[in-house]
Amino acid sequence: MDASEETRDWAELPRDALLAVFHSLQHADVLMRAGQVCRPWRRAAREEPELWRRIDLRRRAALSTSILYHLDVMARTAVTCSAGQCEAFWAEDFVDDTFIFFLSHRATGLRSLRLISCNISKQAALNEAITRFSMLEELELSLCSGATTASGHYNLADTCTAAAKACRNLKCLRLNKYRFHRRSGYDGDSEAMEIAKMRGLRCLQLFGNSLGNAGLAAILAGCAHLESLDIRHCFNVEVNDETRVMCARLQTLKLPDDSMDGYDLSFGNPEMNAGIPGLDFPHNAEMNFGFRGDILWDSW
């Protein structure tokens, strides 16, 4: 086989075979490496929406700094390549208001949205976007920073309201704070009361949330199909016999003082002194990294 023949054969690797290769690569590698090799590979990377049905651009050790730096641009490209067929979008660090706006117009069929460490300065933008994701079954908004309430606390009650109204199929919800804050004169149950309106919820994770026993009771009463509940570091919840009785029907239960094993995000030490404001996003000096697995979302 001469050189030219060899070149032709390799470039014309069947589309399905090439897609099998691309499916095994990280999305960042497909866009920045394999997709930049030659025209047939580029076409396969960009013209096959199937490849972009599930976009995962969470932080990975394997991603080089230069790639991490381009996640915003890559994410836009990936969503565009999905041609409206994107069903799952998972991202970390780079998502902001403008990207949320972009996503809500280009991926309305989304069934799973997981945003970690994202900076949403205009919560109205996030809420409006959520209303467009009517098919959403899984939602995660963890370690988010940006718009804060008067008490200096990043509150997602309005977003929960929007999700409860618009996303009738919502089964899994994950709203994790970086650390727990005990604050006086603050209604910690506001998010919980809105979550209670999500009737179809099966899995719920609220790490470091300020909800109390009233909020927990509302959730358990409202979400009749709830199977899995994780309220680790939610120290406003007093675990007593009544609480245990309420939670008896759950298949999986993690209580405030339970071990952090299996928790896959960074977290800080709880702020137990009432009235002292703290940070709601990771602070490099005291980051604890767990492994990055998917506890509640094996089906994805």
């Binding site: 050189a3 070149t7 390799w10 290769v21 095994s24 690569l25 490496r33 394999a34 090799v37 030659c38």
Partner: peptide, 20 residues
């Protein structure tokens, strides 16, 4: 094949696969 490609630059991939 994905394991071979992983982490390589487009130029390196071209060399490995003799691509134009």
């Amino acid at each position: 094949l994905a394991r071979i490609i992983e982490g390589k630059t487009p130029e390196e991939i071209r060399d490995i696969f003799h691509l134009p």
